[in-house]
Amino acid sequence: MNRANSFLINELAADLEPVRAFRARDGLLLTGAAVVISLLLVALIHGFSHGTMEGTASPFFYLANGLLTIFGFACAASVVRMASPSVGNRYSGAYWMLAMLGVLPVVALSGIGTGDHAHDILTDPYGLECALHGSAVALVTAVAFTGWLRRGAPVDANRAGLLIGLASGALGSAAYGLSCPLDTLSHVAIWHVLPVAIGGVVGRLALPRLLRW
């Protein structure tokens, strides 16, 4: 080993302080905490809908929010793992689940089972409001995950930004969804899935610069 390397190694060793190692469990706890805070915010600001409280919402409501939640946790698990890089890590599962989630808007826009026309769905007077509120709630998770990965060592900032956006959008929208009284397939499948797309685009474009190291 050359002298410069030896010198550097001695310097780094002299600077050594104990650190708390990253563990997947800590990341999952962070995810849980972000979801709980999101739910509290939704409960305080909007309140949960009657359908949610009494369990009388339509099956589409539970189906869509269930899918959003599972998709959000799948992306969150990838984000958590990205903090500790390793050759051999795979993240393709989240993309397959994204395709699965995409079935909802495709079915809604086709009008199968509902008879709704795409034009009526897209001009839903409450739709944009729901999408924006869901996106706003997503900020809680996005901030938590960005902080997590800034302390970690993600080696693909673009993918990390995208997955943070998708996870936050899905979990934020699922949390906000509990306050929404509209439970038709055409509303939920479009306007409650839209925050996932918004989160993905914003995360992919805005976050990489914060995550490079």
Partner: peptide, 20 residues
Amino acid sequence: HRKRASYDPARPFLPWLAAI
């Protein structure tokens, strides 16, 4: 040195070093 906390002790070391 800067990212030493990002090594998860439950996982292998060399793939972590190789990724960095």
